[in-house]
Design a binder for these strands. Sequence first.
DNA 1: GAAATAAGTCAACATGGCTGACATAACGGA
DNA 2: TCCGTTATGTCAGCCATGTTGACTTATTTC
Lengths: 203, 203
Amino acid sequence: MTDLNDRLARGETAAETKPPGGKAKRAGPRGNGGVARRRGSPSEAKLLEFAELLFFAYRDFTSDPDAILKDFGFGRAHHRVLHFVNRHSGLRVADLLDILTITKQSLSRVLKQLIDKGYIVQQAGASDRRERLLFPTGKGRALAERLAAPQSVRLAEALKGAGPGAEAVLRRFLEAMINAEERPKVSSIMHSSPAPLKPGGKG
Amino acid sequence: MTDLNDRLARGETAAETKPPGGKAKRAGPRGNGGVARRRGSPSEAKLLEFAELLFFAYRDFTSDPDAILKDFGFGRAHHRVLHFVNRHSGLRVADLLDILTITKQSLSRVLKQLIDKGYIVQQAGASDRRERLLFPTGKGRALAERLAAPQSVRLAEALKGAGPGAEAVLRRFLEAMINAEERPKVSSIMHSSPAPLKPGGKG
DNA sequence: GAAATAAGTCAACATGGCTGACATAACGGA
DNA sequence: TCCGTTATGTCAGCCATGTTGACTTATTTC
């Protein structure tokens, strides 16, 4: 199959391919669609390159666990739930809804499957017995770890490839990408239960 | 609604919530599940924090265009197609399939809608008339830019927030997150047609 | 005791993935 | 020129995962 590389190798870039109605409005003197920009801030084109890189990075980042999930009859939605229950065990259904920003009906379907198949268990809250706290079973932790493994490898290599200081920069970047109002919530989630007690001991 | 913050404010972290079957296996002296790691490379826990941050960042990154798309009766799939056609106009259907890693049938549905509604036009290839080169119309470019705008703002602010040198670090990180075999392909896509001629002049 | 809250459920629907099968047009080499 | 391959499009059906709206149950809180 001919791919873009081959086309480029043949000297046929899309830019050279002249299309039909061609009244090409020439770009103005600023060359950026007439948008003024602050000194030192990246150009619109550069920002869109980052948007594309983010897309490609996320696309491949999710591909490894997706392949594993297929063998278990699960999808990416199950992964998200299992991940957060595993990493922040004891969280409530409401917390999960908040994290995933999906409806309770959507979550319910996926969560029920994970519970039915013995990957997650529920436990009524001690102080408020209406709450259902969620915990991974042994089986759930094992799957979560298996799904996480290739993503950790990828992240470790990418951080190494990004050079010294990358961790701090990346952390600040990613945090700043999150909606400002959400940041305290995300922060409290991320600092909760980093090494939880194990409820599903024999799971 | 009580959220995690409130719970934390009440002093009820998930870590403190004791679950039922509590035979807590204590972590070994290394405290990382017995996994050895190279000096200087981030701990598993830290890597998983980056995985979570990436999830939250991407979640919010896509939320702005998603809201706009709703008004047009489009979804995220339309955005992806329109973005790449706009930024790399003249690309072929096969290129798009390669970028998105979806099937031709999935792409077809979405692409047809964008063509029918006048956001994208097709043009037979000059050297190979089987190829259908894709171009945005004026309307298509307008929508693409409108969808890109909030994402650019978010990226610009996040880069600023990440501090000096963030651009180079982030670029290296994101590139390294992409599957190694895919990198030349991605690179050739990203360097194609950065400021294309405009086919859909009146579009 | 009544209102509010956490969770679960039923039903119906939309989007966007997937597989499989097949059609058409155009290219390219024997 | 003919044939195999390629690029694209299409029909049909299925599945995963998101949505809205309405309602129930248990429990907490005022």
